[in-house]
Nucleic acid binder design. Structure first.
Length: 228
DNA sequence: ATCCCGAGGG
DNA sequence: CCCTCTGGAT
């Protein structure tokens, strides 16, 4: 179990050498804001609006005192913009009120912030503070189940199960490569098994949910097919 | 139509 | 467990 998991992990690391956090940021606050905005949209789209947002709002207090309409307009193209604006304003206020305007480098503190769930918290910990964290998004959860690392759906249980298989120092990179793999190859509906570098170790290969032949035809990236 | 590196609320 | 929030790309 552990051996297979690590083999899959290292193979994916080689397959996605560019796997990393793709949100532009210079400090924890910027990453936190960008990550809150990234829900149900793409990093490319978030990076399109953050320059203007970061120029206008530089401190937690700036977000707390933001003009709602102005901020909504700036982040409108990222979707869910009313909920996100609401979160960012409350988030700024909470940072000022409870953490001296700084982003707390602890999971238990981060998840108490408005608009910050466990996934967002671990992104900030891993990429702004260098604290190893597993970010269980929809891709990560799906792949953890396909690889039979766990059948749990509760993100916390998934974290614990996978964390026991992969060394802690690799948790952040593991999150990135699984998410890359989920987006670029092992899609939810039509996984491109014909181009999957870990198909030979995948317990779900050919189980009916996957569609190797047709999925291969949908491949948009130049990946070398691997026969199991 | 379906999906996107979610979170909060019922 | 369910639902809602939203624009943009494919």
């Amino acid at each position: 179990m552990t051996r297979r998991a690590r083999k899959i992990y290292w193979t994916l690391v080689e397959r996605y050498p560019d796997a990393r956090c793709e949100l532009d940021f210079e400090n924890p606050l910027q990453l936190l804001v960008a990550t809150v905005m990234s829900a149900q949209t793409t990093d490319v789209r978030v990076n399109l609006v953050t320059p203007a947002v970061f120029a206008r709002y530089r401190t937690a207090g700036d977000y707390a005192g933001a003009d709602r309409t102005e901020l909504e307009t700036m982040i409108q193209s990222t979707g869910f913009y009313r909920a996100k604006t609401d979160s960012l304003i409350k988030l700024g206020a909470a940072l000022v009120a409870r953490f001296g305007g700084e982003v707390p480098p602890r999971l238990n503190d981060l998840v108490t912030l408005p608009g910050v769930g466990r996934k967002t918290a671990n992104v900030v910990l891993g990429n702004a503070f260098g604290v190893p964290g597993i970010t269980v998004d929809t891709h990560f959860g799906r792949l953890a189940r396909r690889f039979a690392w766990t059948q749990e759906k509760d993100p916390v249980k998934v974290e614990h199960a996978v964390g026991a298989l992969i060394p802690k120092k690799d948790w952040t990179m593991l999150s990135h490569v699984l998410i890359f793999h989920g987006r670029r190859t092992c899609h939810s509906r039509r996984p491109a098994c014909g181009a999957c570098p870990v198909a030979s170790w995948c317990p779900s290969y050919g189980d009916g949910e996957t569609d190797p032949v047709k999925a291969t035809q949908l491949l948009k990236y130049e990946l070398t097919p691997v026969q199991p």
